[in-house]
Amino acid sequence: MGKLEIRDVSYIYGKDTPFEKLALDRVNAEFCDNCITGLIGHTGCGKSTLVQLLNGLLVPTQGKVFLDGQDINAKSVNRRELRFRVGLVFQYPEYQLFEETVQADIAFGPKNMGLDSEETARRVLSALHFVGLDETLLTVSPFDLSGGQKRRVAIAGVMAMQPEVLILDEPAAGLDPIGREEILGGIKSYQRARNSSVIIVSHSMEDMARYSDNIVVMSHGTVTAQGTCRDIFSNHELLTDAGLSIPQVTAFLAALRKNGIDVSKDIFTVDDAVKEIRSYMLRERNRA
């Protein structure tokens, strides 16, 4: 069973108003424990609504959300504590920074959890390291940082709460390649070090192929597929139907096969493609 599970969940915005809109339609999905799940889909497919249901910011109109098998919307569950267990980083989180120093801003979450100052300081430092920022920045005002640095401070602010599940909505949106790699790499090392569960919402197939273990595909308010990267990315039709594209390198190997070169179609990263082509060359040489 997954760490987080949603069963038959529907969500309607502005219910009983003229602006009623069905955002999620009887969705079922499972998010694995101790791994990274990529949540992919085109804009307006319901990804952002779904992640807010996962930490109780929104309550499903119908259906249930389970964390470790427990219904998170049950009366016995404390909403605020739930949010400490399932941390959520919104899109463009740098716009939520407000404290005078980076230190204070990252400490906001841990302080709200009621942790003492020693533990808070420890967590702030550890989160700062995961996002790859320097300790000298702790005393700086977050408003004096560059865009990419602000983003990382905001992510550290949620990491410092050390949630069991960390959800990030488009954490690398609008960043340059180095910025993307630093943030996604930081998230991966955080996940490996803490053995926690991470969910990343993204529409970059290339990034998800590199950083996630499992994939959940959404389209028009429903989950259309879920499985390992291999399962999902080898199913080109499924992705095209969901308005998504396959990683460029996967498309390239498909074109190579069309040219009569027998290479695997389950290749999603450049490194794997290099290995596959080299092993093809070896196979051919041995045959000759």
Binding site: N55, R80, R83, P93, Y95, F108, N112
Partner: peptide, 16 residues
């Protein structure tokens, strides 16, 4: 819209 988003984001960090 932004206020809504900021409120949700701070709630997610345990703001009360």
């Amino acid at each position: 819209e932004e206020t809504d988003k900021i409120i949700s984001a701070q709630k997610a960090r345990g703001a009360d």
